[in-house]
Amino acid sequence: MKSMSRMAKAVLFVSFVATPTMALAAGTLDKIKETGKITIGHREASIPFSFLDQNQKPVGFANDICLTIAEAVKEHLKLDKLEVVLTPVTSATRIPLIANGTVDLECGSTTNNLERQKQAAFTNTHYLTANRFVAKKDSGLTTFEDLAGKTVASTSGTTNIVQLNNYNAEGKRGITIIPVKDHAEGFLMVETGRAAAFVMDDILLSGLVAGSRSPSDYALSEDALSKPEPYGIMLRRDDPEFKAVVDAATAKLYTSPDMQTLYAKWFLSPIPPRGLTLNVPLGEALAKAFANPSDSADPDSY
């Protein structure tokens, strides 16, 4: 017990000493000005938001938005030259890398919610996605009601699998839920027949279907388990100056006609690496979110 309390004291001491230092840490804008560098965190397979093309170069819808933000930061700081560094992040590394200053902007498909806002800030929403499932067309599964008694996969650690769990529990639907490691594996479960359906964000499902061997064999569910949830570009918390610049830059882009072109480029046209077309037209809610840029985490506000 003695050593325990000593440890508790040590923890307390560290947290007292560490807190003021954190608050005093230089803002992101100062850091960018000083180093002449802005670091963008990208994903490797978040199609079409942030992924690697055939030359292993990060590209994507969110990537393009971040490049626009970098340009705006350059103008704001009146720099002649701003080097944009692209660093790969994963779902497990994005928080530490944002927190310790390695990455300034995380551009991918990160859901903005209140729980996460305790750890990071989000700029204006760049996409809205709902929780749906993909199944083989010949299985005849079209709504969540049809999943009763079936084996269904969903990616572990996502809000999607939680919603599926709740849906299953409250209606006693007898769905066997298999958690999978990542989206590619979830789709593989459906492809190989291990699961009848894969429950995930609809845009990610569209990406998986477009990239599959025979895209015409698969269909997305007609109904969704959730209201559309916002994706946002993530930045460090408690840095209002930087957030203001980023918010202004994204708001300017989203409300301009360029956004329609940018959307069409990634959602309605062939995209690398294999020239597939997602064919996901701009929905009403998202069009509204672009017209009135918002960083709200509340699905009801869209």
């Binding site: 497990a92 530490p96 729980e115 750890q119 996969a153 572990s156 999978v180 490691k181």
Partner: peptide
């Protein structure tokens, strides 16, 4: 965890995904 077994590491990953409290 790579084949979907919800053992300790998988739960820790899930927890950081939900809460962003990675460490």
């Amino acid at each position: 965890l790579t084949i979907g077994l919800a053992e300790l590491t998988a739960r820790a990953r899930a927890m950081q995904e939900f809460t962003f409290q990675v460490f």
